[in-house]
Nucleic acid binder design. Structure first.
Lengths: 215, 215
DNA sequence: CTTTGTGAAATCCTTCACAGCG
DNA sequence: CGCTGTGAAGGATTTCACAAAG
């Protein structure tokens, strides 16, 4: 029952499964049951099975899933077959941290270039890379196949930078600046706002304090 | 119709509204319609109205919502009445970036302390703060009212650090390390994994490339 | 005439529970 | 016997569409 449309909620969990699988492979595990996967990722086994059923029939009844096979399958579905090149734009504190973050490297991506608009930053080195100018964006797309931009620019500059990114021909943006980005439909955008996450956390913490006090 | 249980999906959007409201206030706007809010946050007006209806009846028909009033209401619901103190644990590249990130400060939080287990880092300064030892966690809770921990530790140390945080009496964790954290039910956890976000983005980018090629 | 607030419909997601395969 | 794969049930969320308020 392969190749159906994969639900959004499922896509959002695939990276977790992938991570558990990679760790299991490192630990020498050959197969994992849906229950193993569930325990390691904090979910229920039914959810795991449903999720994986959208990818196709990769399990063996009575046994579980083959670690190597499922790893390949999820990587393919996520489009992680090769190291995908990304450019980080905005080399402030956060941008610098992202540039040297080894998690990207270890999980299917390669930081191919760094870009900043500040003339004082252009030409400086961060890790192995030299900061380039926004004018270089089109050539990153053309000559080096970069289609994913990670934005860590100041909030008031982000829409303008996104426009440049789109004009240069990139097709996906991971945005760390607060606020909504307006881009054409063909561009894929995901936004992660660190303060927003803290605010959501704050709500639930407050809630559990209140219900604890009531008991 | 105030004080019902607020759906998770709605809670996750409240910070966006809050941000739009603050910007509108800065721009001198006195009221905003659900459509204004929707356009500024990339949603539909029906969704905005439904969301806000869970907080109570704060709009005026034919006019919209009073910026100041709604700002106060959402802040209260999210528990942002005062600057909430947070501690950042794990002062690597990411931790350092978070420590100096002014977004936290501007949106209801105060970075009250920094903690790292590395003796070489303890005692060093980052911004206005001096890095402390994990042993200081209980006193941060007791003497300075810190209940929220932001974890930016290496993946293989994170569960142990989370255990310390819980033992020290904190009640909320924002986790930036990959992988699942196991904590008691009374603790509120949110995880943000930067690589996961890129992988999800990669899936949707790939998807839109495929459908574009089909046309 | 504009814009809210909301039932009702439609869609999406999770959980249940069990048939069926290895 | 153990574990997957999945229909069907149950919840949650989004969208629709309109009555009512200013």
């Amino acid at each position: 029952m392969s190749q159906r449309r994969i639900p959004e909620a499922t896509v959002a969990r695939l990276p977790r499964y992938l991570q558990v699988l990679v760790e299991a492979a490192d630990a020498g595990q050959h197969t994992l049951s849906s229950d193993d996967l569930a325990k390691a990722s904090g979910l229920t086994s039914a959810k795991v099975r449903k999720d994986l059923s959208f990818l196709g029939t990769y399990g063996t009844r009575g046994v579980g899933y083959t670690v190597a096979q499922l790893t390949t399958e999820i990587s393919t579905v996520l489009g992680l077959s090769d190291d995908r090149p990304v450019v980080i734009i905005g080399i402030g504190n956060l941008g610098r941290a992202l540039a040297t973050y080894d998690g990207f490297t270890r999980r299917g991506f390669r930081v191919e270039a760094l870009v900043d608009a500040d003339p004082d930053k252009i030409g400086t080195r961060v890790g192995d890379l030299v900061v380039q100018a926004p004018q270089d964006l089109p050539s990153l797309v053309r000559d080096r196949g970069v289609t994913i931009a990670v934005l860590a620019t100041p909030a008031d500059r982000t829409q303008a930078v996104a426009d440049d990114v789109v004009a240069a021909g990139m097709t996906a943006i991971l945005n760390f600046a607060p606020g909504h980005l307006d881009v054409p439909d063909r561009i894929t955008v995901r936004s992660v706002d660190l303060s927003t996450e803290l605010q959501i956390l704050s709500f639930y913490e407050q809630l559990s304090q209140v219900s604890a006090a009531a008991s």
